[in-house]
Structure formats: C-alpha cells, structure tokens
Design a protein around this nucleic acid. Structure first.
Length: 422
RNA sequence: GGAGAGGUGGCUGAGUGGUCGAAAGCAGCGGUUUGCUAAACCGUCGUAGUGCCUUAAAGCGCUACCGGGGGUUCGAAUCCCCCCCUCUCCGCCA
C-alpha cells in the first residue's frame, strides 16, 4: 500500500516507474477520486463541527433552564444531513482504497527494467554442477525407487500435488529443517519462532495476500482463518499495530512452517515430483529494518540464504528480478536458483525481498527513535524451501548404484552418510 | 461448550450522558539544580484524516479514534444490541 499523500504528490513519477512493471496507473481516475473524496470529507466535517458546537449550546442552555426544543429540532435535522454526507464520503473512501490496494510497489532504482523472467539479471554463481558418469535420474524416479517418496498413496490419502515422505526421506526433510534453523540461529543472528500455521484475515491483509490473492489460499470454512502460504504471514504480523524501538532494529526472525498453497492457475506446471505441492515445508527469514539500512539488510539476508546452499555443497546462482517479474509488494527481489540435474538447469529455491514500507503501512508496523515515528521496512526470504533442497540433495548427490550420499554438514542430523534402497 | 470478571494513551490506572482526547502516577523528551550518579523541581509528551499556510518542515484550526461493528440521543468512553479478545472456575481434550 502506498502512502496516500506522497502518492498524490509524486503521481507522475510513480506512474512512470510502475509502467516498467507493466502496470498502468489510471491517473485521471485517481485524481478525480482523490479530489472528490477530500471535498466530501471537508463538507461532512464542517457540518459535524457546526453540530458539535450547537449541541454544546443546548447543554449550556438547558442547564440555565431555557427552552431548547426548537434548537434541538434544528440540530436533529443537521444530523440527518450529516448521515448522507458521511455515507457519500465513505463510498468515495472505499473506492479510493480499492484502487490503492491494487497498485503495486515502486521498484527500487537498482532493479533492472524488463518484461519477464527472461530479463532477470544473474548477479553471481557458486559451485559447479556435478558431472555424472551415468545418466542422472530425476527425484520423482529416485524417490520411489529408494522407498523414500510415495506419490500414489498420497494421492489416495488426499489428492494430486501431495506426497508422503517415508523412512530416511522423512528424516532428510526433518534434518534439513533442523540444520537450517541451527545455522541461522547460531551463525546469522536470527531468533527462532514457531508461529501458528493458521492466520486471520487482518494478518493476510497486513502482508498483502488479501484482498487480491485470495484464490491462492486455503480458507477454513465458516471462519475468517486461512492456512498460511508462507511463514512471512504470521511472523511479519507478529508486530502488526506495534511501534518498535529504533535501537532494537534490525530484528531478525527465522521460522519453520509448512506452507499451504492452492496453486490455482499453475495447472500443468511442475506436475512431476515435489517441486510444486499444495503443502511444503519452508524455513523463512524475516527482518524488520530501519529504512536507511534496509537494502544492506536485503544483501545480508540473501547471503544468509546462500550460506545454507554453500554448506550443503549445492551449486546455485543468484538473480535479481527485473521490474516485470517482481512480486506486487516487493521493491527488490533476489531469487536464488539451485542446480537440479533432473531438470538440467537452475530452479528457484529462495526468494528474498525488501518490501520497504509497503507492508508496514498496511500492517501499521512503526519504528520510533526520539520523537520521530516512521514505518519500518520489512524483508523476508526463504532459507530455504525445504522440499526443493531435499530434491537438490537427492539429485546432486546420487550415485551410479542408485544410492544418495548425504552431504557432510547434514550427517550429524541424519545419523547416516548414505541413503540406499531397501 | 457452560458460569463469572474484564478490555481506556508506551505502561499502571481514574472516569456512568455535555465542562473528556480523557485525572493521576510511571516511562520518554527538553530544562533547572548538582563534583559524578541518584534524587528533586519546572515544562513537554497519543494516532490518523482533513483545511489554511508553506518550496518543505514547523505552525494554526477542524474531524475521528477509550477492543470491533451497529443502535438510542440535540449530544456517548459512559446507555442498549451483536461480535472479538484476555483472565478465573467447570466440562472436554493432545
């Protein structure tokens, strides 16, 4: 959500940059809505001020014993007219709000201009994709062969896009979660959190999933609750409607949660394997930062995510998303893509974003130093998507005999150095 | 799920129809005093919208906000209705 008065003041410049996203701001409609709304507010408030003054007069008069019948009737009529004006103002307000809620964030100056994912720019690359003396398999073959993934029975239990991890497969997922949380809490300065996996409407509004993206969510029938699609929702909303002491920033949280996504509109994409599921596990990093240093925090957050891949010895590259590929709330996003032999290419495993004050304004997360109060900047990034990390390990560390070697760093968590069939 | 108590500014807490954006205390901020610390004293101290003024900030007004929504009334923190949340007891339960 944009700040209304600065949006109004910088309308043309903002509209120009939003055009780089492929978003057109209807500046004419905005201007007229904005002007009408303010006129309605002014009119209604003037009448209300008048009524308040008259009401007080009634109070004084009746105390002194004077007859106020006539005055009362006049004020009552003012009240009726007030109701009409209030209603008109409320309607205009709602229209303007609806318009503002649909306008995406302004990309940061450092974000490259482009139309689609093809225009994203690689900023660095780490590691070398493994060379195999045999034809490497994809995880959807390896998993069932090793007895560590079961798609058929998951489909029976629930349906498509669900999976059962089994045996060392389940343990690998659990080991990755513990490993990631330990690295972030012990080496990167994050505080671990275990939040609710269900959140209410206000929280989803605060981080921007509502009202626009309701179709992507699972709603709990008969309630205002939704299953979270990412820990970003509960963890960012942890401080909704609060003012944070500027001295305490940045605040850094990490959280493991399952994530639930309806994946409406992704039919036919990543249908094989566990790349795209209705439920997946993720460790998320969330930061609350002072505006002046939020871009430094984005850099370190991205490095924190990359560190997990380095420790696991998984080759990856980091790209900065271009204006056309940027999420609506984000001002700048890095995607980290891990090498997957099964796809013979790099696949997104993390997305690290700075939302600047875009979420904080919706969620009313402020920071205060001395007398000055302003909106904090919020950031988040996956570190990492656990299921896709699982895939990366199984595919990158597969051996000619069909077994999977466990990377050094994970062995204490796995209690074994290899996964074999049987 | 049942019974009861309660939700007021950063915190504690007064306030049952007009003089209440709201006493008082604490914390914060500015200052005086002080060798330092502590203490004392004086002042200041909510958020948002909107109008005027302004390059802007500041300033000066107005409006709204006492958990949320609706109602009664000329006028609501205060009365009525619905909802949410917290606490205590009971029931159920991992």
């Amino acid at each position: 959500m944009h700040d209304l008065s600065s949006f109004r003041q910088n309308l043309d410049a903002i509209a120009l940059r939003l055009a780089d996203r492929g978003f057109t701001v209807d500046t004419g409609t905005f201007r007229s809505l904005d002007t009408e709304r303010r006129a309605a507010i002014t009119e209604a408030e003037k009448l209300r001020a008048d009524r308040n003054a008259q009401s007080q007069e009634i109070g004084k008069l009746s105390k002194s014993g004077a007859d106020t019948t006539e005055l009362r009737e006049r004020v009552r009529q003012m009240g009726e007219r007030m109701k009409e004006l209030d209603q008109k103002a409320a309607e205009l307000e709602a229209n303007l709000q609806a318009m503002m809620a649909s306008i995406p964030n302004v990309p940061h100056a450092s974000v490259p201009t482009g139309k689609s994912a093809d225009d994203n720019v690689e900023v660095r690359r780490w590691g070398t994709p493994p060379e195999f003396s045999f034809a490497p398999k994809a995880h959807w073959d390896l998993g069932p062969e090793l007895g560590i993934l079961d798609f058929e029975r998951a489909a029976k239990i629930t349906g498509a896009r669900f999976v059962v991890y089994k045996g060392l497969g389940a343990k690998l997922e659990r080991a990755l979660i513990s490993f990631m949380l330990d690295v972030h809490t012990q080496h990167h300065g994050y505080t671990e959190m275990l939040p609710p996996f269900i959140a209410n409407k206000d929280s989803f509004y605060g981080t921007g999933q509502l009202p626009k993206f309701e179709a992507d969510l699972f709603k709990l029938e008969g309630t205002d609750y939704y299953l979270i699609p990412t820990a970003e929702v509960p963890v960012t909303n942890y401080y909704r409607d609060e003012t944070l002491d500027a001295d305490k920033l940045p605040i850094q949280f990490c959280a493991y949660t399952p994530c639930f996504r309806s994946e409406a509109g992704s039919y036919g994409r990543d249908v094989r394997g566990i790349i795209r599921q209705h439920q997946f596990q993720k460790v998320e990093l969330v930061k609350f930062a002072p505006p002046e240093s939020s871009y430094d925090e984005l850099e370190s957050l991205t490095r924190d995510a990359e560190d997990i891949l380095q420790r696991l010895g998984l080759p990856y590259r980091t790209v900065v998303l271009c204006t056309g590929d940027l999420g609506a709330s984000s001002a700048k996003t890095y995607d980290i893509e891990v090498w997957l032999p099964g796809q013979n290419g790099y696949k997104e495993i993390s997305s690290c974003s700075n939302f600047e004050a875009f979420q904080a304004r919706r969620a009313a997360i402020r920071t205060k130093s001395g007398k000055k109060s302003e909106f904090a900047h919020t950031l988040n990034g996956s570190a990492l998507a656990v299921g896709r990390t699982w895939v990366a390990i199984v595919e990158n560390y597969q051996q000619a005999d069909g077994s999977v070697v466990i990377p050094e760093a994970l062995r204490p968590y796995m209690g074994t150095d290899v996964i074999r069939a049987g």
